[in-house]
Amino acid sequence: MKQTLSVIILLSSISFFGQFNFDTSKEYPFGKMNPKAAKEIQDYKQLIGECSCTSESRKPDGSWAKPVKMIWRWKYIMNGKAVQDETLKEDGNHSGSIRQYDSIKKQWNVHYYSSSKLSQTLSVWNGNKNKKGNIVLYKNHKAPNGTDGFFRLTFYDITKNGYKWIGEWTDLNEKIVYPTWKIECKRE
């Protein structure tokens, strides 16, 4: 009886741990895509890994602040069914996102968090990869003067060597565009 119970426990643990074949490991430090995940998980395929980046944001007077060096690290999480990224900035302000694809709404839901602005609830951006190969995400956001609009995030010029990112306020028709943050990354 004792031997049978040991075999059952061993088989159960093998089965349980086999569920995590796509998680980070020594062999795959950034995890792997799960073939059972939504095919859109491949939208982030070229970003997975680590890049050295330069981040620039606007100062209150509208001029661009001095560039800040950072590392942007991407990995598969939830056993290869979602993506997580984190930024480690030279100035000590770090941030990250959890990215899940909603197969019903056909869009990415991106939950953002930051070490500089702790929040009870996470900000959420939604969007997709467009025909140009850019990943474009939106969040409703009023301009300082109260005009309705979006804060738009765009990953573009995505290659195996790196990518660029820009954060912009746009009006609802996306005719008025005001960039507030830009990042350029090169693959490690």
Rank of each mutant, 00 (worst) to 15 (best):
M1S: 14
K2H: 10
L5G: 00
S6I: 00
V7L: 02
V7H: 00
I8F: 02
I8N: 01
I9V: 07
L10R: 00
G18W: 04
F20D: 09
D23W: 05
D23A: 12
T24A: 04
S25Q: 10
S25N: 08
K26H: 12
E27Q: 09
E27A: 10
Y28F: 10
F30L: 03
K32A: 14
Q42S: 14
Q42V: 05
Y44T: 00
Y44W: 11
Q46C: 02
Q46N: 05
L47N: 03
L47C: 06
I48Q: 04
I48A: 03
C51D: 13
C53F: 03
T54K: 09
T54I: 10
S55G: 08
E56Y: 02
K59P: 06
P60F: 09
P60K: 12
G62A: 00
S63E: 15
S63H: 03
S63A: 11
W64G: 00
V68P: 04
M70L: 14
I71A: 08
W72R: 03
K75N: 06
Y76Q: 02
I77C: 15
I77P: 05
I77R: 02
G80R: 02
A82G: 11
D85N: 15
T87N: 07
L88Q: 09
E90M: 03
E90Y: 05
D91L: 08
D91Y: 12
G92R: 05
G92V: 05
N93V: 13
N93A: 07
H94K: 10
H94S: 12
H94Y: 15
S95K: 03
G96N: 12
I98R: 02
I98Q: 13
R99Q: 15
R99F: 08
Y101V: 01
Y101F: 13
S103I: 06
I104D: 01
K105Y: 13
K105D: 12
K106R: 04
Q107D: 14
H111M: 14
Y112K: 15
S116C: 10
K117E: 14
K117A: 14
Q120M: 11
Q120K: 15
T121E: 08
L122N: 13
L122S: 12
S123D: 14
V124K: 06
W125C: 05
N130R: 11
K132M: 05
G133W: 07
G133C: 13
N134L: 09
N134Y: 11
I135C: 04
Y138M: 01
Y138Q: 04
K139T: 13
K139I: 13
N140S: 14
K142C: 06
P144D: 15
G146A: 04
G146K: 08
D148W: 02
F150V: 06
F150M: 03
F150Q: 00
F151N: 11
R152V: 05
R152K: 14
T154C: 04
T154R: 11
Y156F: 11
Y156W: 15
D157G: 11
D157S: 06
D157C: 06
I158L: 07
I158N: 08
T159N: 07
G162Y: 02
Y163N: 06
Y163V: 03
K164H: 15
K164W: 08
I166G: 01
I166V: 12
E168S: 07
E168R: 00
E174N: 15
V177A: 07
Y178P: 00
P179I: 01
P179W: 09
K182H: 02
K182V: 02
K182M: 10
E184N: 14
C185W: 04
K186N: 10
K186S: 05
K186E: 09
